[in-house]
Amino acid sequence: MIRILLADDQRLVRAGIRGILDDEDDLHVVAEAADGRAALAACRELLPDVVLMDIRMPGTDGLEAARRIAADERLADVKVVMLTTFDLDEYVYGALRSGATGFLLKDTEPAELLHAVRVAARGDALISPSVTRRLIAEFAERPERSRTPDRRLDVLTGREREVMRLIAAGRTNGEIAAQLVVSPLTAKTHVSRIMAKLGARDRSQVVVMAYEYGLVVPGAPAD
């Protein structure tokens, strides 16, 4: 059973999302919160698997709450998916860097929302395509970096760097396995080792590191 916390300042929005989630046998909403502070308190008390967090809330907003969740070692297993009505939100990059597992737009179809919750619970990143474009544009607009990858990537093997490039391109474990002609278990092991070596909380942070550390250049093909 995947335990979910809903954080949104609009009661009607919470009710609509809850209705979608509670119809599923493997999903259960354990609590609701109307602002980031209440969401953080509920996380510490209930330890949900996934938090669906609105970005813009009064008081402590969703971004600050996500940062605090990511910084709390007791909440290391809690995955945060940000919900927004803005596909060009200027805080996308900062929130991903701070530990949000993914972003979804509020006009996402119910089936996509359910898929996102399950993907997040597994520890995989889930980002709306339009938000992914915004993230890549953020890096593309920055001053040109050295084409030599950061020395912090020296801990990775050649195959792990290859896998990291594919993660940054949005490939799932199954797609990585197919492209590299390895088993899905081997692909998953590579991903886990990359996260452990780089100290990444989840795949979203691996994506950010791939760009930050110069492994991937915006606009260049992943393979």
Rank of each mutant, 00 (worst) to 15 (best):
G16Q: 11
G158M: 14
L21H: 01
D54K: 08
T60R: 13
I17L: 15
V81L: 03
L104R: 00
A100N: 08
M82T: 04
E32T: 00
S146R: 09
I55T: 07
A196V: 13
R142D: 04
T85N: 10
L198V: 10
R134T: 15
T189F: 08
R159P: 01
G102T: 12
V208F: 10
P184M: 07
T60W: 13
R68P: 06
D89V: 06
L114P: 09
L156Q: 12
Y93M: 12
I136Y: 15
R159C: 02
A65D: 09
T60V: 13
F86Q: 15
S98W: 10
D202V: 05
L135N: 11
L40D: 09
R147Y: 00
R68H: 11
M1W: 00
F103S: 08
C43G: 13
E32F: 00
R74C: 03
P143K: 01
Y211F: 07
M57G: 12
A125S: 09
Q205G: 09
R159F: 11
L104H: 01
M53V: 06
G199Y: 02
I167S: 00
E45G: 02
S128F: 04
L63A: 14
Q10G: 02
L47S: 14
E45N: 03
S130H: 08
D87K: 09
V92N: 10
R56W: 03
D154P: 04
V119C: 02
A178N: 12
E24G: 06
P129E: 03
T172N: 04
S128T: 13
G16D: 13
R56P: 04
A187T: 07
E175R: 11
D8S: 05
L198W: 03
I194P: 12
E162I: 04
S98R: 04
